[in-house]
Design a protein around this nucleic acid. Structure first.
Lengths: 252, 252
DNA sequence: CAGTGGTCTAGACCACAGA
DNA sequence: CTGTGGTCTAGACCACTGA
């Protein structure tokens, strides 16, 4: 038996045509909220595009674009000839691109950071390649240790083009790197990550307070801004007993 | 100095209005090809939406949707008031959702598989939770060892709902799991992955022919189909000297 | 200022699923 | 058959960029 459902019209009052937020985005937000609040439950069908547009005083393409956003997010499914319904297991959190600091905040932990080094170095071959610089040209290197609830979680080494930064100790202690980039007008849009594992070095063993014979989880990452310019290249080592990397992938 | 560029009209002959492939997808494919072939190079601007539509005999929304697809893929950037251009470092391969087998094929290696076990088991708590089954209810379990070029790469343990499968030895030896699911009409659309590292067990040490003290890279994964139904839950162990996990994330 | 992408409208026809 | 989403058209107005 199919569960029929029409979105309560109350949830849509107050669409603001003069807002800088596009109408389709306002509509998408309202639908998402009703799903998150469990008013619309998995498997329930929502009203069809045309009817919804008429009720809201919107054209079909506008409504359609709102629904499309949620389909891309993994919250709704459209079935030709049938209708649009909420997926059985809606994607929980939109993982997306974030740095460790933001992940920790989001999961309710108390991150802190120790800055080990901030200096200008000559890039090695792989780094200059990743950042699209001439081999051996200078770049800014950060080495940080990230803690959560007082325990060391990761050693973070990042290399950035010289024109980005420098950063103050206070900035680095209280913000994620991507936050600091955003504050400088740089939005990370694409990241390429290579995740592996290996035995810990003596230094990692000491710094991360690892148990004997514990390995480290490693990540090699290059980040690109909206224009496709490489803005950051890093290699990170995580204490595997205290941290794991989570990825939610949605096929478009 | 800006590099002006107009897509050669030759690249657009042969748009097929009667094809089941939508026009916007045909157009997107042609633009992508010119980027991949380096005819359109990073930083070059493409023709504006309206002009391109006129040249191709298409409406603006259709052209726009084609461009939108490539923006979402991380190949183009749109700048209001300026134009649309190729990003500086176009995303190489669309990693997306794939299984290990397909990854290996794509990177030119010769994968093979040994089936260790295929049986019906009672699910433990975490597995039944992941697959949205009643605790302790039966499910199908596969245990495989994956090789590349004759060397063991990973131990793959997967649990699936009983109504999916069983699979023949031949199928499992010659295909990735997601391929087999597709052949049964199941398309994996969302995966949730947790990646970590730990010391190898004796069994892993033996099976993966690991060096002494080598850790394993681990992945815990749940896959969902288009409707959001959980179709697979697995835990995998990889030999970290021979394999690393690659993720390309594009912010929408 | 002219040119660009961002949004929105009001239609149209089609393919497909289910009664 | 009806109702749904999938595609496509031909316009419109706006916000923003750069000359």
């Amino acid at each position: 038996m199919e569960v029929e459902a029409i979105l309560p019209v109350e949830l849509f009052v107050g669409l603001d045509r003069s807002s800088p937020v596009p109408l389709y985005h306002q509509v998408a937000g309202r639908i998402e909220r009703t799903i998150r609040q469990d008013v619309l439950r998995p498997g329930m069908r929502i009203e069809n595009e045309i009817g919804m547009g008429r009720r809201l005083g919107l054209s079909r393409p506008t409504v359609r674009k709102a629904i499309e956003q949620l389909v891309d997010k993994g919250l709704l499914v459209r079935l030709r000839g049938v209708g649009t319904q909420v997926v059985e297991a809606p994607v929980k959190r939109d993982a997306g691109i974030s740095s460790l600091y933001e992940d920790l905040i989001a999961s309710g932990q108390r991150p802190s950071t120790t800055l080990i080094d901030q200096s200008v170095i000559e890039t090695d071959e792989s780094t200059s390649l990743a950042l699209n610089l001439d081999p051996g040209s200078p770049a800014r290197r950060l080495i940080r240790v990230r803690f959560a609830n007082g325990l060391p979680l990761a050693i973070l080494t990042n290399v950035l083009p010289l024109d980005i930064g420098p950063f103050t100790d206070h900035e680095l202690a209280n913000h994620g790197l991507y936050q600091l980039l955003r504050a400088r007008g740089i939005t990370v849009r694409v990241t390429d990550q290579l995740v592996g594992a290996r035995a810990a070095t003596d230094d990692e063993h000491r710094t991360l307070q690892l148990p004997d014979d514990s390995p480290v989880l490693t990540m090699l990452r290059t980040a690109y801004d909206g224009m496709g310019r490489a803005v950051e290249h890093g290699h990170h080592s995580y204490a595997p007993d205290r941290y794991a990397l989570r990825y939610t992938l949605v096929e478009k």
